[in-house]
Design a protein around this nucleic acid. Structure first.
Lengths: 250, 250
DNA sequence: CGTGTTCTTGAGAGTAATCAAATAGAGTGG
DNA sequence: CCACTCTATTTGATTACTCTCAAGAACACG
C-alpha cells in the first residue's frame, strides 16, 4: 500500500451526516439549474465561436460581456510574474463565464478556450438591468456565483492540504461529477480534452510530477487517463483517496 | 539576495494596465459597500456574542442563519480525514458570513470564532424574501459573493504557485488592505489576533515552516509579526515579493 | 519526412515536512 | 508572589518529497 493512502479507519473521525440532506439538496439543485436557464438564454445577444487556445477575456482588459458555454471547454487562469500559471477552474458546457466582471470589471482572471468553443454572448449592461426585474435570473446568477466559490474553495483545500495523489483523485472525481450533471460522460468514464500540463497547472504540480502521479493511480488500478479519455476503474478506491463527496456541486 | 526573490525585470512580462481602472473602481467600491449595508442591517433579527474558539456554523449542520460581523475575527475552514485543517478565509468586521448556505445549506465549511465575536444574525428565509423585493440588497449580496470568490481565487493562486515566502508576504499585504478598507489598522501596521498555526493552516504550510519564513521576512527587514501586531517595515519589498495589487478587494 | 507538442522516464538538487526539544508567556491555584 | 500547566513560538537535525534538468519516445500535422 502506498504511503499516501489514508487508513480507512480514520474515516470514523468524520461527523455523521444528517439523513435528510440529499433530499433537500436534489430539489434545490434541479430548481436553480433550470429556473434561471431560460432567463439567461433570453439575454444572449449572439453566439460566437472561439478557436482553441484563444483568450475569451484577457488580463485586465475591460470587457462588457459575460458568456455561457454551449459546447467546448475553457479555463480561467492567472499568470505570475515568473511565468508560471495557476489554473483556477475548468469550465464545461452550461457554465456561466465572466460573471464576476459584472461588478468588478477589472479582475485579473484570464479566460481561455481549451477546445474550440461555442459560446453565447451576454451583454453586461442588459444583464444588470435584467437582474433588477427578473428574480429568477438574479437567484440563478447568485446560485452560480456560490457554486463557483464552492468549487474554488474545494480546490483550495485540495492544493493546500492534500498530497498529490489524493489531489489528483479528487480532481478527476469532481470533474466526472460535474460532467455527469451537465449530461456528459458516464459514471465510469468520460472524455477529457485537457493535457497533463493543464491539469498540473490546476493542481499546483509540475507536469512531470503529475505524470508520475498518474502512473501511480494506474498501477493501483484506480483509474487511467489516456488519449483524452478518463476511465474510473475503481471509484471506491478513488473516493477513498480523495475523501470525496459531490454535494457541493449541486 | 535570497533565492526566492523574483528579479525585478521580470515585471516587464506583465501586460500594461489601463489608466482608467482605478477611477472606475473606487466608485463601484464605495457604492456597493454602502448601498447594501442598510438593507443588511435591517435584516438583522438579533445580535449575539460568540466566544473565542466556538463554531458559528458546524460541519454540515443545517443552519437557517447567516451573519454579519460587528467586532472580532472568524475563519472558515475545512477539516480533512487525516486531521489536518485548511483555512479557506479569515473574516473581519463588516464581512458577511454563511451566505452560501442561502442556496446550498449543506456545504462543508465550518465557521469558527477566532476572537470573541459580536455578530448580527440574519434569518435566511427573510433574507431570501427580501432579496426578491430589494435590489440594492440583492446586488450587495452578489457583490459580496463575487468578492469572496475573488479572495479565495487569489488565495488559490498563492498556494498553488507561489513559494512560501512570497505567499506569506502576499497574505499579510492582503490582510492589511482588507483591514484598511474596513477602517482598521494603518498602512504600516495593524493588530492581528491570529496565531502562527492558524496562518500556516491558511497558507498550506506547517506551523514550523511558517515560523522560519517569518524569520526570513524579519531578517530582510520587510516585516515583523509579534504579539498580535503586524508591522510592515518595507511595503515596497513586500509588494515585490508578493506581486501584489489590491484591486480585487474593492 | 521533418517539426513541434505531449508524454514518459531517469538522476540529482533543493525545499518543506517531520521529529524532537528548548524557550517564552499567559493563566491558575496554592 | 511563586510554582505549575498549557499553549505558542523558536530552533536544530533528519527524512521525504517535489522540482529541475535532461533526454528519449510517441504522436499529430503540414
Amino acid at each position: 500500500m502506498p504511503h499516501d493512502l489514508l487508513p480507512l479507519d480514520s474515516k470514523s473521525r468524520l461527523p455523521s451526516i444528517p439523513t435528510n440532506r440529499n433530499i433537500y439538496h436534489s430539489t434545490s439543485h434541479i430548481s436553480y439549474l433550470t429556473m434561471g436557464r431560460e432567463s439567461v438564454d433570453a439575454l444572449v445577444s449572439r453566439k460566437h465561436i472561439c478557436m482553441k487556445g484563444c483568450d475569451l477575456i484577457h488580463d485586465r482588459e475591460e470587457s462588457r460581456k459575460a458568456y455561457i458555454i454551449y459546447t467546448g471547454w475553457a479555463c480561467s487562469y492567472r499568470l505570475l510574474r515568473d511565468g508560471t500559471r495557476q489554473i483556477i477552474n475548468f469550465h464545461i458546457p452550461g457554465d456561466l463565464l465572466g460573471m464576476r466582471r459584472l461588478l468588478t470589471p477589472d479582475c485579473d482572471d484570464n479566460l481561455c478556450a481549451i477546445t474550440c468553443l461555442e459560446v453565447g454572448d451576454i451583454d453586461i449592461e442588459s444583464l444588470l438591468s435584467a437582474l433588477c426585474t427578473d428574480n429568477c435570473l438574479a437567484m440563478s446568477v447568485l446560485w452560480s456565483a456560490f457554486r463557483d466559490e464552492a468549487i474554488v474553495a474545494q480546490h483550495l483545500v485540495d492544493i493546500g492540504r492534500r498530497k498529490p495523489i489524493n489531489r489528483t483523485a479528487h480532481f478527476f472525481l469532481e470533474l466526472g461529477a460535474r460532467l455527469n450533471i451537465a449530461g456528459l460522460g458516464t459514471r465510469a468514464a468520460y472524455e477529457c480534452p485537457l493535457t497533463q500540463s493543464l491539469i498540473a497547472d490546476a493542481l499546483g504540480l509540475t507536469a512531470v510530477h503529475f505524470n508520475r502521479v498518474l502512473r501511480q493511480l494506474r498501477e493501483l488500478n484506480a483509474m487511467t487517463f489516456h488519449e483524452g479519455r478518463v476511465a474510473l476503474l475503481d471509484s471506491g478506491k478513488l473516493e477513498h483517496l480523495a475523501d470525496f463527496d459531490s454535494a457541493y456541486l449541486r
